[in-house]
Amino acid sequence: MEAVLSAAIGLLAASGVWLLLRPRSFQVIVGLCLLSYAVNLFIFSMGGLSVGAPAIMPRGGFVNPDAYADPVPQALVLTAIVIGFATTALFLVVMIASRGLTGTDHVDGRERSP
């Protein structure tokens, strides 16, 4: 399982970084989204993988921490998902505005001189 998830993270990150380095702004947005999936999964996996053990506690009594998934990476990733959405929205709007202002969708606002 660990190997599959690691490979998946690597693949998402590679696709994301490749797109990040492309010149068209839409490519960069898609790249950032892919990269944020990869990073979210990466942070999430730092707590270790456990199946069928969500961090829902019994009401009172003894708690054995080993029987539950680590809640800290989950809390971090939950925040990251929401913030990721916000930055995507901001970037999208900047992209639209810059497209309207400059007439091109190149990230530098002008086509590369040949």
Partner: peptide, 13 residues
Amino acid sequence: FGSGLAATSFLVM
């Protein structure tokens, strides 16, 4: 970058 991140996450997990 991708293989580095994959290796890191595999090692940590």
